[in-house]
């Protein structure tokens, strides 16, 4: 009963936070510097691992598909399989997971520490709404950055798959035919589908991590607990949301 109530409370306060952040959206122009800082931070911290991971995920996909195609014939479908899996599923989920680990944890740690060391209280006595300054710019930044990161993950993943497909002996198909099936059987809708997912994941991850950070109570040891809670909650939400968004979009 108690965990159930806590989940409901969490959902309630997160929705409230979203509404308040939306209310401060008009202040974006004068907080443009903060917004750019957050975009840069999200890009800078996640881009290198997004690139490395998506390259290898693309490669492994090609390898596994090649293995399956050994007995089944048409190897060109490897391109389509890598293309679709990356765009529709793996890129958005992977980017969101990395976002939770690198950005979400940092947000939770920063806001929790500001809360514990009374910086949030200080903002309130200064009549500066913490949500306006700390949450809204981050949410806008993640909405702007998620598609960028996801498209990069798509491209790098496809490219990784193409390389493996060419240089693995039992596959050995040329990039031209690898990409030809992708062009033929995939359209922009498939990529778009992944971008919508990525937006949903990214937005919720940042919102939840902000909320957990801002609701930290107690002493410094709670900062660590808040970070753990933020990352675990984010991961659960990504996977649960993945199912429902996929269902809604199909």
């Amino acid at each position: 009963m108690k965990p159930f109530v806590r989940v409901l409370e969490g959902v309630g306060s997160t929705v409230q936070l979203m509404v308040r952040a939306a209310y401060f959206l008009p202040t974006l122009p004068r907080q443009f510097g903060r917004f750019i800082d957050q975009c840069y931070l999200i890009g800078y911290t996640t881009l290198p691992i997004v690139a490395i991971l998506s390259f290898f995920i693309g490669s492994v996909l090609a390898l596994q598909a090649g293995y399956a195609a050994q007995n089944l014939g048409p190897k060109q479908f490897i391109g389509l399989l890598v293309g679709l899996s990356m765009a529709r599923e793996l890129a958005p989920v992977m980017v969101a997971v990395l976002l939770a680990g690198r950005v979400g944890s940092a947000i939770a740690a920063e806001l929790a520490s500001m809360k514990v060391y009374q910086e949030i209280d200080a903002l309130e006595t200064m009549n500066i709404p913490p949500v306006r300054m700390l949450v809204m710019p981050r949410l806008v930044a993640v909405v702007v950055m998620m598609p960028v990161l996801t498209i990069i993950a798509d491209l790098v993943g496809w490219f990784g798959g193409a390389i493996v497909a060419k240089y693995t002996d039992f596959i050995a198909i040329e990039p031209a035919s690898y990409f030809a099936t992708m062009r033929q059987y995939m359209d922009f809708g498939d990529v778009m589908n992944g971008l919508v997912k990525a937006e949903a994941f990214g937005f919720v991850v940042v919102l939840v991590c902000c909320n957990i950070g801002l609701n930290t109570r107690g002493g410094p040891r709670e900062i660590g607990a808040a970070v753990t809670r933020a990352v675990v909650t984010s991961l659960i939400i990504i996977l649960v949301l993945d199912y429902f968004v996929t269902k809604a979009l199909s």
Binding site: S113, M114, Y117, Q118, E119, D121, A122, E124, T125, N127
Partner: peptide
């Protein structure tokens, strides 16, 4: 009241913005 009266609280530990 916070908008109408300018009040400042000097926190015990300062509560300076560390960043």
């Amino acid at each position: 009241t916070r908008e109408q009266v300018r009040m400042a609280l000097v926190f015990q530990a300062g509560a300076l913005f560390n960043s």
